[in-house]
């Protein structure tokens, strides 16, 4: 008697056992679940808009009017071009603040994520503490961070830098922990099993595996942070946000429009550049 046959018989026996279990109507369950979910979604939306006394329909209806006002007043005029050097200077400052805040928090977040990822953590308690820190940092919005640091550091680029740094750190801790878990678990196991040390596994298995995703997150956050930095600048009186604030409050709408336009251009440029970079490192 051939062993192959035996294995097949064992399998067949397993199948007859499985048939004894009453079948579940999984398609029906899926339809029901979808229906329930849709209902819940609608109820949640309706309830929230009612709770804020906010009329969803009139909000949508006033949209065209708002756009029209924007179009009439915010078109950058020819003589607003004289503001361009000043706008460029402040925009550059804002871009630099976002990039430094993003890269420095990325370095710290990567180190911290190694202490919290399932594959590389030294123990479960440290992992929990790091995760908690990430959640804490994330739960405070960047505007609140800006207000907090405004007390200690006043109206300076440092305030904006720290506010963005904190929020980005919280976001990165979570993103990086997941990235390390997903991309390097199996190779870390192999290296550990061959006698490699912790530093070996981190440098030779984790780092090479996470690079594309980490770079992707960093580029995404630089884009996001240029927008955040604009908002933070409004609050702390620095960077491009401050310039916008001045023009807006003194009702110089065309140069304010130019500010908005130049932010859009820079964000677009950065997006094009980051797509290039992403594609080149897979």
């Amino acid at each position: 008697m051939k062993p192959k046959k035996l294995a097949r018989e064992a399998l067949a026996a397993g199948e007859t056992m499985a048939k004894a279990i009453p079948p579940r109507d999984i398609f029906g369950e899926r339809r029901r679940n979808f229906f329930l979910f849709a209902l819940l979604f609608l109820a949640l939306t309706w309830w929230s808009s009612w709770g804020t006394e906010f009329d969803l329909w009139s909000a949508f209806a006033s949209f065209p009017k708002a756009l029209a006002w924007l179009g009439l007043n915010f078109i950058p005029s020819a003589d607003s071009l004289q503001y361009l050097p000043r706008i460029g200077e402040k925009l550059l400052e804002t871009v630099f603040v976002s990039i430094t805040a993003t890269t420095t928090s990325a370095v710290l977040a990567f180190a911290l994520s190694l202490f919290s990822s399932k594959t590389t953590r030294p123990n479960a308690w440290v992992a929990l503490v790091v995760r908690g820190l990430g959640t804490f940092l994330r739960s405070i919005p960047v505007a609140a961070w800006a207000m907090i640091f405004l007390f200690s550091f006043g109206q300076s680029p440092l305030t904006g830098f720290l506010a963005i740094f904190m929020e980005t750190l919280g976001f990165f801790i979570r993103a990086f922990i997941e990235t390390v878990d997903e991309t390097s678990e199996s190779s870390v196991e192999a290296l550990r099993a061959s006698g490699a040390s912790w530093l070996h596994t981190v440098s030779q298995a984790v780092l090479p595996s996470v690079v594309p995703q980490l770079v992707s997150w960093i580029l995404y956050m630089i884009e996001t942070n240029i927008r955040s930095a604009t908002l933070v600048g409004l609050l702390t009186g620095t960077g491009i946000g401050f310039v916008f604030d001045i023009y807006y409050k003194s009702m110089r709408y065309p140069p304010a429009g130019l500010v908005v336009l130049s932010i859009v251009v820079v964000v677009l440029l950065i997006e094009i550049l980051s797509n290039r970079i992403r594609r080149s490192i897979q």
Partner: peptide, 17 residues
């Protein structure tokens, strides 16, 4: 000890990049 014992896995566990 581990240097004296090799290990081979179902999913190869290589650093793919």
């Amino acid at each position: 000890l581990r240097t004296g014992i090799g290990m081979i896995f179902q999913h190869y566990n290589l650093v793919h990049r």
